[in-house]
Design a protein around this nucleic acid. Structure first.
Lengths: 131, 131, 131, 131
DNA sequence: GTGGTCTAGACCACG
DNA sequence: GTGGTCTAGACCACG
């Protein structure tokens, strides 16, 4: 994983773990990799991972069991919410940014569609080159 | 203006000025408020503003004239590019984030449309309440 | 190192580090001396060195690793380019200056050759005197 | 004329006037344009021009006649020297820079020859496009 | 008054 | 210990 130097790494790790949970790479109730393992995987200091996990435990997304590790909550409500929040946050961010550039809602949608079309074309090229 | 603690202030200032330029609140060729004035307005240090302006000068968006001030370029190519870049960056960010959540392109578009519809409704309410 | 008062120190530092990189005194992938150490060695302020390093990071010549230091890129393309740019800049400068004095390209070459011959003779004298 | 922000403008003006003298655009004994006229031509403050002229008077290249203006010296020795100095300075600068990059004298000559050849080709293109 | 450079020194995130 | 950001404040060139 690659980090953006302009944002605290622990926040980026927190976000990364949330993504894993939302996509069920870390399913409900599953054990999160050990602190030190995560630190190794992400080539990051243990303290930094610790801080990210702490905040996730605080918010109830993770449940810490002393001596055995951290587990993804199996509370469907929290998990549902986590996903909704994440998506809404991203959409709100896009809206706010483009709105500040005086771009109308209709334009936002067409701009996104164009972007996705271009993206698709690129990946087509990519996979053709790979095969 | 209010700053996000999780990002360097000078980058936020840079971004803010770019928005002003894109929306023509700072039209091509116009003078950017004086360095010290900006620092006062934004209640940050002169050097912090300097750094933001400096990077914009480096990239050709602003032109610095010794002893007279900083001016928005009137090179339409650069200004066009600035706008395009800004929009593309935002779309790329949304795409990357939602893609990581395993959301398909079609879903992205419909999610955005729903978000915008909800947004519109809110503002409708807002304006009704205001009148 | 001694600085020319008629040019910003940070640019001179930048140039100095580029030379070290081009001549492989700082080989690809190697660690640049610590920020504070460089400031001590060059007897300038930390921020001044920072600014020089920052611009080299921006241009991809250096890579900054949080908490560990700055490293020379190992991207051969960038390094190659750096060398070429540096040489071309110097030649362009000479050309422009002598051209302004109405000196023809042929004369430039012979003038350079004469200068180098004289230089060589001097160094010969020097080494004879040293031995 | 266009100035390099990284060097004092008065030095650049001084250099510019020297070039005019060496190329006889300002012949020996001729009158240098009036202070205020120069300032207008170069779109520069009067004080800045003044400072450049002062230094040229100090070095004997210009002769100031109270109330009538500044004149180029007609002392051939000084003029000869001025030209020689200028050329030698430029060659010395190139040598010093390329030497620092561990480039041998022979390489310097061939690099210059290549640069001039490329330059010639460009100007050929240019003039063909102009006609 | 205007921007550009530099210093001294604080504080932060990360290792 | 390492780099990154920010502040306060000085000094300079230029207009």
């Amino acid at each position: 994983m690659h980090f953006d130097d302009n944002m605290p790494i622990y926040l980026q790790i927190k976000h990364y773990i949330c993504q894993q949970i939302i996509t069920r790479k870390l399913p409900p109730g599953s054990r999160v990799p050990a602190l030190r393992q995560l630190a190794l995987d992400l080539t990051v200091n243990v303290n930094t991972v610790q801080r990210a996990l702490n905040e996730l435990v605080q918010s109830g997304v993770l449940v810490s069991k002393r001596g055995t590790g951290n587990f993804v909550t199996d509370d469907q409500k929290i998990l549902q919410q986590l996903r909704q929040n994440e998506i809404e946050t991203q959409l709100a961010h896009l809206y706010q940014q483009l709105h500040a550039l005086k771009i109308s809602p209709q334009e936002m949608v067409t701009a996104l569609q164009q972007y996705l079309k271009k993206q698709e074309a690129h990946q087509h090229d990519q996979s053709r080159r790979d095969s």
